[in-house]
Structure formats: C-alpha cells, structure tokens
C-alpha cells in the first residue's frame, strides 16, 4: 500500500505542490517544467524508501507528511 498507490499519489502531490514553492527562474517556467521532469525520480525515491524502511510507521509518517504538506500547498493555490 505504502510503496504502491500511496507513493504514487505522494509523488504526484509533490510534483503539483512544487509549482508553489519552486522559483520560476529567468523564463518563468522552472516551477512548471522541473516538477514534471522530476516526477519519475521522485516516485522512484519514495518507492524504494517505502520498501527498504526498517520502521514502517516512520515511513508512513514521512510519506504522509510529504504528501500532506504538498496537498495543503495545492489546496491553498486552488482556493486562493
């Protein structure tokens, strides 16, 4: 569960949340392009962490916090 759907959803939330906090750069596009490009790497890192973590509760907490913080950023942007 943690390595599969949760990692995928969290990676997607990190990708979307990054649009809010990443600097947009000279061309005003970095905060849009980089999260999409990095999405496969974010998911891979989360997947491997979830499977290799020795303490499952801590892994759930880390993934949950990452997903929660980015979900809050996305929600704030949507309802701004």
């Amino acid at each position: 569960m943690l390595a599969g759907p949760l990692s995928f959803v969290t990676a997607a939330l990190i990708m979307l949340g990054s649009t809010v906090w990443l600097p947009s750069g000279r061309a005003q596009i970095d905060n849009l392009v980089l999260p999409i490009v990095l999405f496969p790497l974010i998911w891979t890192a989360l997947f491997l962490y979830a499977l290799l973590a020795r303490r499952l509760t801590r892994a759930y907490a880390v993934v949950g916090v990452l997903g929660g913080v980015n979900a809050a950023l996305v929600a704030a942007r949507l309802w701004a």
């Binding site: 750069g25 061309a27 005003q28 596009i29 970095d30 849009l32 392009v33 980089l34 490009v37």
Partner: peptide, 15 residues
C-alpha cells in the same frame, strides 16, 4: 529561443 520559454532557463535546458 529555447524550446520552452522566451529566454534560456534551467528548466528549459533540462526539458
């Protein structure tokens, strides 16, 4: 110009 954006940028280069 680069493929993305009107000016060179890190994100555009990576893309």
């Amino acid at each position: 110009k680069p493929l993305l954006g009107l000016a060179p940028s890190f994100g555009g280069q990576v893309y």
